[in-house]
Amino acid sequence: MTTVNHTATAAGDAPAVLRVEDLKVHFTSAAINGRKRTVYAVDGVSFTVRENETLGIIGESGCGKSTTGRALVHLNDPTSGRIAFRGHDITRPGRAEQHELRQKMQFVFQDPQSSLNPRMTIQEILAEPLRAFGRWKGNSGPAKAAELLDRVGLPATARNRYPHEFSGGQRQRIGIARALALDPELLILDEPVSALDVSVQAQVLNLLMDLRASSSLSSVMISHDLDVIRHVSDRIVVMYLGVIVESGPADQVLDQPAHPYTAALASATPPSSPDEVRQRIVLQGELPSASNPPSGCRFHTRCWRADEVCETVVPVLSPIDGAGVRSVACHHPLLLGMPAMRREGAA
């Protein structure tokens, strides 16, 4: 599996492609017995994606990472906050502006089987976005479909077949080809390899790395798999119950976690060599409900370092190094430079 150079954009000198500020996505249910229930799926996240950078978003199921990704392309409407693409506010775009944004921002779904129309041939699937923007013209249309298939490592003859005739990895390649059809500047990838075998995962991830190198793509990679995030991401943000608890360069955050939650996630990954010894941090209890998040630090109900301050005061995501490259939202962050999974015992 190809490994990205994590120092490429760590200095933050590349221009911002996407800037998200205090994004909130809340869902309110219909009234039941006169009461409405609000789910605080995303509750104030801020981050930046730079030119030719991959930003990873990690966290366990229910943390809000997929909802965040869907809000970026307005598959979920933001409740509040601001989303800016290349300096232009796109938080609530008009219909014409949203149509234009589809050319610049594309989404790759987790399940390639359900995201591809089984009644369409591959050529028809690839032609759909091109026709929507007037790019499917005469004989150049089929040639463009063949070119897209070639970019993702599939033969031109695949364009006359249907999705069910392909393996899961091949279908995901087709989904990526469709996302690339309009030459976007930003890809949002929601667990793009989670349903694939390990060997196929490596093929798809290497494909994404090659596409990034050849076309200067920026991307947001959403995953619960820390090994996937490590290999493809320059920087990562760690989400827990709708908020960001830590951010920074991928290798630094995963090898020297500053937040207890990140340390617990990192301790659960298999060692990279037989000689490596890790002390597993087993969190007690379940993820609290996003409709009734805990007061203070949202992680305090499962954290072995929590005290009265954690129960009452909300921690602010603050820099923990002089360069401002790494940030953590914790009243009692772990010491940098010492692997937390070796210092702390199980909760």
Score class of each variant (00 low, 15 high):
L55E: 00
Y40Q: 08
S80G: 05
L182F: 05
F133L: 03
A202T: 12
A290E: 05
T121A: 02
V73W: 00
S140R: 15
G12R: 11
L207G: 01
V313S: 06
T312M: 10
T28K: 11
A16H: 10
E191L: 07
G44T: 08
E191I: 05
S327I: 00
M221Y: 15
T67Q: 07
N5K: 14
S214K: 15
L149Y: 00
R235C: 05
L186N: 01
V193Y: 08
L254A: 03
L101V: 11
N33W: 12
A156P: 01
L23T: 01
T3S: 13
S215Y: 13
H164G: 06
D234L: 10
E308R: 04
F47L: 12
T269A: 15
P155G: 06
S140K: 15
L265N: 12
M341A: 12
Q103Y: 09
W304P: 03
I83A: 02
P249V: 07
R178M: 05
I188E: 10
P270D: 14
P271A: 11
E97M: 10
R92V: 10
E128T: 04
S295W: 03
S233E: 08
N52M: 07
A96G: 11
S214R: 15
L148M: 01
C297Y: 02
E276H: 13
A250Y: 12
N117D: 04
V282T: 15
V49H: 09
E60K: 00
G12M: 04
I236K: 03
R95Q: 15
V325I: 15
L149G: 07
L196A: 11
A263V: 11
A346V: 10
G34V: 08
Q172D: 03
T2K: 15
V228Y: 08
R35L: 10
R50E: 00
L207H: 13
F109Q: 01
P93C: 01
M209F: 12
G62S: 00
R159M: 05
N52D: 04
D251S: 14
R82Y: 04
V277G: 06
L18A: 11
M338W: 14
R70H: 07
S233A: 13
E124Q: 04
V193S: 09
P155T: 09
P93T: 05
L207A: 00
L208F: 11
K65I: 08
T28G: 06
A41H: 08
P155S: 01
L317G: 05
Q106G: 00
F299M: 02
A264P: 07
V253I: 14
R119I: 02
Y261L: 09
R119A: 02
S215W: 08
I32H: 11
E128Y: 01
A347F: 06
G324I: 12
Q106H: 01
D275L: 13
N292H: 02
L211A: 04
Y261G: 01
H164T: 07
N160C: 09
R37E: 12
Q201S: 03
T38D: 11
A179C: 05
A8F: 12
